[in-house]
Design a binder for these strands. Structure first.
Length: 233
DNA sequence: AATGCATACAACCGCCGTACC
DNA sequence: TGGTACGGCGGTTGTATGCAT
């Protein structure tokens, strides 16, 4: 049997969203709120798959989205978080207010990867390319290939194969267990956690239940401060 | 001006985890 | 306990745009 499709594909639009579709979706979510994506298209009068509506809203229409270029700070934060988390785009996006996982993923693939490569850093391992090539006894010389070659389809395929063959790089003895917290806050001392109802990174409790005696600064990547502050990275 | 190639990014696809029955 | 629905995620593709020739 298997699962039923998420929608009737014969009766749904695909491709770019029109202005009218956007307006319908926005209007529907304004009055009914997010959620129940499967039934939303019918209720909103859209010939779209529920998943498509969700993606359009989350990645493009949400009012709290920050459009425009990434700042240097955001750049650095993405690189640092990627070195810790790998391709966990949603977790990375959770630390960049107003940015979506899709946006960060695209930005990584189009800008940051190339930037790191041009600096001689392997974007998947965050190690110097020369170190990697010596690790592998020059087996994969193409990993230091020229930038002009890297974006070609054949280069992408080769690179995928290399990554499958290459042993995973692991940061030794790092406990990367993560807890969900609210996005980055300007300040994050214990008083803030209690007064603003933030989620404590240390004990995972909210507001007044938090008994962690945390003070600013110190700690790896600021994680021990209860909230990740990328400026400490 | 026409053409081909490269780039950027929106959107889709397929899979997974979880909740619910 | 197993099946199904659903939301969410990461990888991939499609296409519009910009640039070089």
């Amino acid at each position: 049997m298997g699962r039923s499709p998420c929608c009737e594909k014969e009766h749904t639009n695909k491709g770019a969203w029109s202005k009218e579709e956007d307006e319908r979706l926005i209007a529907h979510i304004r009055t009914h709120g997010e959620g129940c994506w499967r039934s939303l298209p019918k209720a909103a009068g859209l010939l779209r798959c529920g998943k498509s509506c969700r993606l359009r809203w989350i990645n493009y229409l949400r009012p709290d989205l920050k459009r425009g270029n990434f700042t240097d700070d955001e750049d650095h934060l993405i690189i640092k978080l990627h070195s810790l988390l790998g391709n966990k785009w949603s977790l990375i996006a959770g630390r960049l207010p107003g940015r979506t996982d899709n946006e960060i993923k695209n930005y990584w693939n189009t800008h940051i990867r190339r930037k790191l490569l041009s600096r001689g850093i392997d974007p998947s391992t965050h190690r110097a390319v020369s170190a990697i090539s010596s690790d592998h006894n020059n087996k994969d010389k193409s990993s230091s290939s020229s930038n002009s070659e890297e974006s070609s389809p054949s280069w992408r395929r080769r690179r995928q194969q290399q990554q499958q063959q290459r042993p995973l790089f692991r940061v030794p003895d790092l406990n990367l267990e993560l807890r969900i917290s609210q996005p980055f806050q300007e300040s994050h001392d214990a008083a803030d956690i209690q007064s603003k109802g933030m989620l404590c990174f240390v004990c995972s409790s909210r507001s007044k239940q938090c008994k962690c005696n945390i003070s600013g600064g110190g700690g790896f990547l600021g994680l021990t401060t209860g909230a990740l502050d990328y400026r400490s990275v």
